[in-house]
């Protein structure tokens, strides 16, 4: 079975702090990590590989340093990494991103399954997975929480819904996005780390994938950012003061009005 996992390098949100004075993000010491949901996607792929044999290719679109994320993927069980990187991709919205990834995946040849994390923690859009499925014209299921079995070109899985779950059967090749309940990602192994150190990622540029320039990056994006601003927080901030008793009194008075 040939499995492709889409991964994204994102800033580690746990290091991101809001600067109380300027109300902006403080990025001091923020490290780049593999998008946490993608770690679950990768683990799902590696488990499938262990069960049914095959290969796992991790693919990412990003700047050259995103190769680090491919190394992490190899350390955690992927066989190979593909970096889709070109200045022309900058500013891509999800529409342009899914186009770029689809072209790159077509270039890689046949596959059975594409697995993505349900969303990336920096953008939170959850659109690239479904967009990619549409462009590749393959069936797609979002929010897989369990893979039951994978036989004769079909895959059975459970899809998490707002009020429960659905049992799904889908023909392959197909694409799914996974939620974190699906598994507990492994930590890299020693052998994986050694393999990762030696790994030479396949690097694909816009020309390599035969992409139409007008469909890439900012130019290829249907959405455009009009402005970016800091969220304003509640205006009537009020710190209660005094002894415990006094604070509780004040709070109860406020609560009375609210409830």
């Amino acid at each position: 079975m040939k499995i492709i996992v889409c991964v994204k390098q994102v800033p580690d949100a746990k290091d991101v702090r809001l600067d109380p004075k300027t109300n902006t993000l403080s990025r001091e010491g923020v490290e780049s990590i593999m998008n946490p949901f993608d770690r679950h996607a990768l683990e799902a792929a590696v488990v499938l590989k262990e069960q049914y044999c095959g290969t796992v290719t991790a693919i990412t679109m990003g700047p050259p340093q995103a190769e680090e994320t491919l190394r992490d993927a190899v350390a955690c069980g992927a066989d190979h990494g593909v970096l889709v990187s070109d200045r022309a991709f900058a500013g891509a919205d999800t529409w342009a991103t899914s186009y770029t990834l689809a072209k790159a995946i077509e270039k890689l040849g046949e596959f059975d399954l594409i697995i993505c994390g349900k969303q990336a923690i920096d953008g939170d859009t959850a659109q690239v997975g479904p967009g990619l499925a549409q462009r590749l014209d393959i069936p797609y299921v979002a929010y897989a929480r369990k893979i039951t079995e994978c036989v004769d070109g079909t895959i059975r899985l459970e899809r998490l819904m707002d009020d429960g779950y659905d049992e799904i059967e889908m023909e392959m090749p197909a694409l799914m996005t996974v939620v974190k309940e699906i598994n507990e990602p492994r930590v890299p192994s020693l052998k994986g780390k050694m393999k990762a150190k030696k790994m030479q990622a396949t690097v694909l540029s816009a020309a390599d994938i035969g992409a139409a320039p007008e469909l890439l990056g900012l130019q290829g994006s249907n959405t455009q950012v009009v402005k970016v601003f800091s969220p304003h927080f509640s205006a009537d901030k009020c710190m209660l003061a005094g002894t415990t008793d006094e604070m509780v009194d004040q709070l109860l008075a406020k609560l009375d009005k609210l409830l």
Binding site: T94, W95, Q127, G129, P130, Q134, N222, T223
Partner: peptide, 23 residues
């Protein structure tokens, strides 16, 4: 932006070759 909306609306937007803003 429910499980269902977030699942198929992106696919629909790609079909229509138009932009979609999530959430």
């Amino acid at each position: 932006a429910t499980a269902i909306g977030r699942s198929f609306i992106p696919r629909l937007a790609t079909m229509l070759a138009t932009g979609l803003t999530a959430d």
